[in-house]
Design a protein around this nucleic acid. Sequence first.
DNA 1: TCATCCCCTTACTTTTAAGTAAGTACATTA
DNA 2: TAATGTACTTACTTAAAAGTAAGGGGATGA
Lengths: 110, 110
Amino acid sequence: MIHQRECPVETLIHVLGGKWKPMILWQLIESNKRFNDLEKLIPDVSQKMLSQHLRDLEREGIVDRTIYPTIPPKVEYSLSEYGKTLIPVAEVMCAWGENHNKRKYKESAS
Amino acid sequence: MIHQRECPVETLIHVLGGKWKPMILWQLIESNKRFNDLEKLIPDVSQKMLSQHLRDLEREGIVDRTIYPTIPPKVEYSLSEYGKTLIPVAEVMCAWGENHNKRKYKESAS
DNA sequence: TCATCCCCTTACTTTTAAGTAAGTACATTA
DNA sequence: TAATGTACTTACTTAAAAGTAAGGGGATGA
């Protein structure tokens, strides 16, 4: 039986929709990061939510997790090639969101 | 004091992120609709969630609510001019989401 | 040996979103 | 008079997401 497809807009919202996911991706667009780096760069995120969201993004194929068997071992998170296809989408979303924030600001200031 | 702006991607996710909002907008892109029309067109939505999401979208300026003082009075919901700026954003999101759904289907089929 | 760092996981609690069921106020129609 | 239709709101319950706090297993360093 074929899986029932949800509305594609909802699919995207589901992929990006965790509280810290846009921030995690924003950081990984800049450069690959280790768990601890992300923890420091994203204020107020808990270890639990960070690892949970990283696993979600990994499961969707957006983020790659690479373990370097060095001593001490290090784990690096990066945007996958597929994950990079999200960048232009995020840019469009970002532009609309910025404009909307400005609009709301003007509204509340008037 | 200036409001703290949230991340613009989160702003958009907040605007579109209710369970029934993409579906409501999809219906209103096609044509103006009354409360009852939307109820019939969106299976499983409750009156509570429909009116709550419509009020959210109205508050954000996406949807216009027009009351016609006919007998019986009728209330019509429509995409505002500003709401129409969401259409190209939704199209980009939709295209990515569709591709992602296909990708997941292939993955699970292999 | 004791503390510390890295990369997490687990159990539990709180908060937020959504669902269910009923009710309201007005009107028309049978 | 009773039922139906439109456009909702309110109170209550359930489910999903996020937050809090603690621990664990491996390593290094003092």
